[in-house]
């Protein structure tokens, strides 16, 4: 029992650590993008400032909204934070309260409430964002399931901490490299990054995640942004710990991952919405090959 409590305590501390560094990683991605576009760009700490700014501002609610609208950002933030306590990384031990499937479904809880809230403000933009979010998530899900399957076959468990790359065995294999590429593609789609979604614009033709959040302001908006920064760092941690077959410290992997996201976002345009099917199909095929090569 004591071991259990310690383990849960460590998980919570890890969640907080990731929460503290999450805006920094988002800031690094933006800085890399700015530099590659030959701009000076905002400070890497800009996201902290933004969150503080929104936190102080007033929340404007439309008269059509219900409790769901207020509940959704809170649930979304909480699911990201709980996901952050679950990823195998710095402090989590062998014991974890949920496995990889639960990790996926906890994030789905956040998505459920965010897409619901998008329909609550009674506007076209929100519904458009929610509808597209569902579309992308349907295509992402099989790839994520296969990504779990490959490590679960390799390490005979679906617990995230058991699925961490075992550096004592042969870890740099064809299947590991394929899985690494595929998971990177999935990560971009899951976190609403280019080429699937454009995190920088509010234009209705391009937006998915931003469309859903269009009606939010004040503290609720800052919770949503904090939640999505957290989701990026959580996925980067997962990517580093489970799928990057290189034996270097995890923190460096996360930083490298952030830089690569910045580079990829600079090199790519936003893809047409119905081309996403092909993009994620490619990720699924990579994973399929990886499992067969395993």
């Amino acid at each position: 029992m004591e071991a259990l409590m310690t383990s849960i305590g460590l998980n919570l501390v890890q969640g907080l650590v990731l929460l503290i560094f999450a805006p920094l990683v988002a800031g690094i991605i933006n800085k890399v993008k700015a530099r590659l576009q030959k701009r000076r760009g905002a400070s890497v700490l800009q996201e902290y400032f933004d969150i503080c700014k929104w936190w102080k501002k007033a929340t404007i609610l439309t008269p059509y909204t219900s409790v769901i609208f207020i509940l959704a950002p809170v649930v979304y933030f909480m699911t990201s934070l709980v996901a952050a306590t679950m990823v195998p990384g710095f402090l989590t031990g062998q014991f974890s309260v949920g496995d990889a499937f639960i990790f996926v479904y906890i994030l789905a809880l956040g998505r459920f409430f965010m897409t619901l809230s998008s329909m609550d403000a009674a506007t076209s933009f929100g519904g458009m964002g929610g509808s597209r979010e569902i579309y992308v998530s349907v295509l992402v899900e099989p790839a994520i399931m296969l990504a779990i399957l490959i490590n679960s076959i390799r390490y005979h468990s679906t617990t995230l901490s058991s699925m961490v790359i075992d550096y004592d065995g042969a870890y740099f294999t064809i299947s590991a490299v394929l899985a690494c590429i595929a998971f990177f593609l999935v990560m971009l789609a899951e976190n609403s990054r280019l080429p699937v979604d454009n995190p920088d614009t509010h234009l209705e033709l391009t937006m998915i995640h931003e469309g859903m959040t269009l009606e939010y302001s004040g503290r609720l908006l800052s919770l949503i942004h904090l939640g999505s920064y957290l989701k990026i760092i959580v996925f980067l941690t997962l990517f580093g710990a489970l799928y990057v077959p290189i034996n270097i410290p995890l923190a460096i992997k996360i930083l490298l991952g952030a830089v690569i996201i910045g580079v990829v976002e600079t090199l790519n345009n936003k893809m047409r919405l119905f081309k996403v099917r092909v993009y994620l199909g490619a990720a699924t095929v990579f994973l399929l090959l990886a499992i067969i090569a395993e």
Partner: peptide, 19 residues
């Protein structure tokens, strides 16, 4: 693999359906 793809698609679409 087929089962996982189907279950993944099913799970995500069910979420969309009830949203």
């Amino acid at each position: 693999i087929f089962a996982f793809i189907m279950l993944g698609l099913t799970g995500a679409t069910a979420l969309g359906c009830f949203v």
